[in-house]
Amino acid sequence: MMPKLGESANEMECFLKGGRANMTSETPTLHPSPRLHVFEQEGGWHWGITIPRPAGSGFKVIAYSETAFMHETDAQRDGDRALGDLREGALAVFAS
């Protein structure tokens, strides 16, 4: 599934800021953006990709999974793929 780039994700953003979600893992990066978050919500596993907001005022969700995964590893794998696709797309823009 391709990430929904640039769409509003207020509900997920609330969860990532400490709402009902249980965030269990992140993909580490050497710089602050973008970051993958994998979390459990309402009986399924989801992922979201965020970037920092200017002036340290939280973060913005730029992509997220629309469907729930049965297992954390499946959500992590799909989120890693989406993050890779996002980074490849960004590199292609800078290279052209």
Rank of each mutant, 00 (worst) to 15 (best):
G18V: 07
P32A: 15
L5P: 04
F15A: 13
A82W: 00
Q41L: 12
T29C: 05
A95H: 06
L30W: 00
S65C: 08
F59R: 03
D78T: 10
A68N: 02
M12F: 09
N10I: 08
A21T: 02
G56L: 11
R81T: 11
F39M: 09
V93L: 12
E40D: 13
P54S: 14
F39S: 08
A95T: 12
A75F: 00
M23S: 13
M70P: 04
M2P: 12
E66G: 15
K60F: 13
G89R: 05
S33E: 13
L86T: 12
G89K: 06
N22G: 10
V38W: 00
S57A: 13
E66P: 04
E88I: 07
R87V: 15
G44K: 01
E42T: 09
H37E: 01
I51G: 09
A92Q: 14
L16T: 05
H46V: 05
R87A: 10
S33F: 11
I49Q: 01
S25D: 07
D80K: 00
G56W: 09
H46T: 05
P28C: 03
A68D: 04
S96F: 11
W47D: 02
Q41H: 09
S33A: 15
V61I: 13
W45V: 04
S25M: 11
A68Y: 01
L5A: 09
G44C: 06
L86A: 10
A92G: 08
A55D: 13
